[in-house]
């Protein structure tokens, strides 16, 4: 199948190879949570809720009492994919993604400031169209920032792939299921550091670097957008306060 039109250079959904899907972010969507966010990347739509820092509920999970315990739960709604199917809780895929999100967020949260406390992050995929991993990390970042939890930097994530000898930014579901390489990068923009790098295929070194650079550019664009959302939200709160 042709994923990039050889004549026009456009992708299956009409994007250019280095074009991202439309982003949309909204904070404060869950009233009960300390921080929450809704994040959309095209048709991928994710909701995240953050509770905490609060006292550790299960003392057995506390490994190091000098740092905050970060917990993460990833779930896909039954209606998020094309075929409606009940998915068991805690299958391999969601356990793995929960772990990835937890590790990525832990790298940016200043856990040493909140000893003996825990932070819970719940992410739920409402609509899946490829790149859920990246969208979940972005939603979690936005929710943590909304909760006012101290972070080193805003960590953002974006995926990139390589199909029809073209590096493609932000793969959608059709491109994702093509079986080509899928590089997901988590990036701290202001500190210029990579916190997450995943790839489920083989890729020559030089190609890999161009694909990764493309993903990093995507991360930077998302970070700019997230900052705008946060600033806009702060201004709105200020107006309400008067």
């Amino acid at each position: 199948m042709e994923y990039v039109n050889p004549l026009t250079g456009f992708r299956v959904d009409g994007r250019r190879p280095n074009e991202m899907r439309q982003l949309k972010g909204e904070v404060g969507v869950v009233a009960r949570a300390d921080g929450s966010a809704l994040f959309e990347m095209g048709n991928t739509r994710v909701i995240a809720a953050v509770y905490g820092p609060r006292e550790v509920q299960n003392k057995g999970q506390q490994v190091n009492s000098k740092d905050a315990l970060v917990r993460c739960e990833y779930r896909m709604a039954d209606f998020s994919t094309g075929d409606r199917r009940r998915k068991p809780k805690g299958d391999r895929r969601s356990t793995e993604i929960s772990l990835v999100i937890r590790q990525t967020m832990e790298a940016s949260i200043l856990t040493h400031l909140m000893p003996r406390s825990q932070i819970d992050i719940f992410v739920q995929v409402l609509q899946a169209d490829g790149g859920t991993r990246a969208a979940c990390i972005n939603a979690a970042t936005l929710a943590l920032a909304d909760a006012g939890i101290p972070m080193r930097d805003i960590v953002t994530s974006c995926s990139a792939g390589y199909l029809c000898s073209t590096p493609l930014l932000d793969l959608n579901y059709i491109e994702d299921s093509a079986g080509g390489p899928d590089v997901t990068v988590g990036f701290l923009t202001k500190m210029d550091k990579v916190t997450l790098l995943q790839m489920d295929a083989k890729l020559p070194m030089d190609t890999f670097e161009t694909v990764m650079d493309l993903a990093i550019e995507g991360c930077k664009a998302i970070a700019n957008y997230i900052r705008e959302v946060l600033l806009e939200n702060t201004r709105r709160l200020e107006c309400q306060r008067g």
């Binding site: 940016s108 920032a145 101290p150 080193r152 930097d153 202001k190 500190m191």
Partner: peptide, 20 residues
Amino acid sequence: VVTPGELLGNSSLLAGLGAY
């Protein structure tokens, strides 16, 4: 208004609450 990770200054300043 600043967001996490934004540069506030160099070592001529001390980090207070909400900064590191």
